[in-house]
Design a protein around this nucleic acid. Structure first.
Lengths: 328, 328
DNA sequence: GTGAAAGCGCTAACAA
DNA sequence: TTGTTAGCGCTTTCAC
């Protein structure tokens, strides 16, 4: 770990450390010839300015954190991985370093991480938010809204997505539409669920025509629930699933019951994850641009870090239906 | 950003800054009563030691990086997300901060990241490795081996996994087994491909009985390739796919051709990703414990950081076949 | 355009 | 057990 320091470069190039510093932080402020001498010395010594010393002197770290708050969540969840991806791209292109962690892990290590901003994905607990704010850390929320906090948040257009899905099913001649719902992050769950009810109503479907079946988040539970829903004479001709995994459960159930898609049953998912095209027939799903959501997080964060005061509080990212063979 | 410093705590509690420092870094070295006074003052001021100043003084950062090297890769790849997950867990539990980046993004920002170690996932370029080593950064490889470098690396037991898959298919009465292969990381591609050929030979299959069809990594390409492979009189009764996505392609093709699994066709995948149980019938696949691979990365890294000299160079993580309906 | 010098907040000898 | 003090490597006034 015997890195060369600014002093070494100073000595070798014959200029002061201040000039070396300037050469690296704002080259335009040193004369061309000096600059070259400094660069030459630096590369000869294989010198790179120490990020730590820099942070120490400037009193800022250029460090951000992405914290996954969905409980039991992991990057394995394609949706959150997509958001993280977007955040990563944004952070890296702005020369910010990105710490990645889960809420659990984050709170296990009490020491101050010295970050300038945190992007909380999913169900962020008020305690975490408060703690971060108290440490003067800028906070942006994604796929969640936190009542009582005045923060920028990025969410998908649940309402619009659900509505497109229902309109599509109705246009295919279906009126009795069932929803297979699961318990996810509190925000998402209620938002999507309510969107289903309100859209159905708005589109003229009666309460008798719409039904909601609940299940857990896993495929097994979804399949069982779907079997219960479909294995009866008055089975609904169309199912809107909370997400693609649950939709896959519906498809498995349909297959076991000998139902053919899309003729005997139409199925729509949500998220438009990679599994949609792996399934046969391919699954119609509401596309959510999660990478874009991540990028937007970084845009808001940048504004916050720049001291802007009129940062949008709530940004809704458009969703759109991807029509595939499971419905037509 | 007006954080209280160690001086504030020192003043308020009436002890020297050294004592405050000790109280936080090694509480056992200060008298109980003093310790309490310090804690009281600290929490009154809402003080938290500055990670940066600490790094500056100790000349170490407790910072590690996870760098995704597969070209065009993202965390969306479930396999790498799993590894990352394992690394994250390990890092956090050791109080290390984890920077996450892709090789591309990493090299775009030339400034020294001041990390103590880097875990490179996938196809790490020699240039990157050399660069890191030159900066005295400890390097661990995962899902890759780098000829010419003497580094700890963690890989899955490709050979064993492939062999189990073939044995399973043979036990089901199949002898003509086709492989659908794709181009992935150089290491993985050749390893798995060679394992197929050598295992087949070892298990007594003739060259006529084994065939390899190549395709791209996407589902579309896999489906087309599989259609070509299956839509002919002498179609193989069993297909071993390079990974689960390609296996899904085989299943789609089979379905379109009216073939029934597992009777008309047996299909085995690789990775045992979450899609295996979403498909119908469920997909038999070689399970790879990617989280464990990530954890092992951290174990090797820890050893390296601790100055250990006899760190294992090559660790092979066991794989095992998960038998499901697509083959039986 | 360049240099001198005063920090930034903490750790780690060394002393007491 | 506690205090004093000299750095850690850089940025940033303020002079020149």
């Amino acid at each position: 770990m015997n890195h060369p320091t600014i002093y070494d470069v100073s000595r070798l190039s014959g200029v002061s450390i201040a000039t070396v510093s300037r050469t690296f932080s704002d080259p335009s402020r040193v004369r061309e010839s000096t600059r070259r001498r400094v660069y030459a010395a630096a590369s000869a010594l294989n010198y790179q300015p120490s990020e730590i010393a820099r942070a120490m002197a400037r009193q800022q770290t250029d460090k951000l954190a992405f914290i996954l708050c969905k409980k039991g969540a992991t990057l394995l969840d394609e949706f959150y991985a997509g958001i993280c991806e977007g955040v990563m791209r944004g952070a890296n292109s702005m020369e910010y370093q990105l710490l990645v962690s889960t809420a659990e892990d984050w709170q296990r290590t009490p020491r101050s991480k010295q970050i300038e901003g945190a992007i909380l994905a999913g169900d962020a607990q008020p305690g975490l938010i408060a703690e971060l704010q108290q440490q003067n850390v800028h906070v942006v929320l994604v796929n969640h809204i936190a009542p009582g906090f005045d923060l920028p948040c990025i969410v998908a257009d649940e309402q619009g997505g659900v509505q497109q899905a229902l309109e599509h099913l109705i246009s295919r001649g279906h009126r009795r539409i069932a929803m297979l719902a699961g318990r996810f992050s509190s925000y998402i769950t209620s938002e999507r669920y309510n969107a289903f009810l309100s859209s159905a109503k708005q589109l003229g479907l009666s309460l008798e025509e719409t039904s909601v079946t609940m299940c857990d988040r896993d495929i097994e539970s979804a399949t069982q629930a779907a079997l219960g829903l479909l294995d009866r004479p008055d089975r609904p001709p169309a199912v809107f699933a909370f997400n693609d995994v649950l939709a896959a459960g519906v498809m498995k159930a349909a297959r076991r019951l000998g139902l053919r898609l899309p003729d005997d049953l139409a199925v729509v998912g949500f998220d438009d994850s990679s599994i949609c095209t792996l399934l046969e027939p391919e699954l119609t799903s509401v596309h959510v641009d999660c990478r874009r959501m991540g990028e937007l997080c970084m845009e808001r964060m940048t504004a916050l870090l720049g001291g802007e005061t009129d940062v949008p509080r709530r940004t809704v990212v458009p969703t759109s239906l991807r029509t595939r063979a499971s419905t037509s």
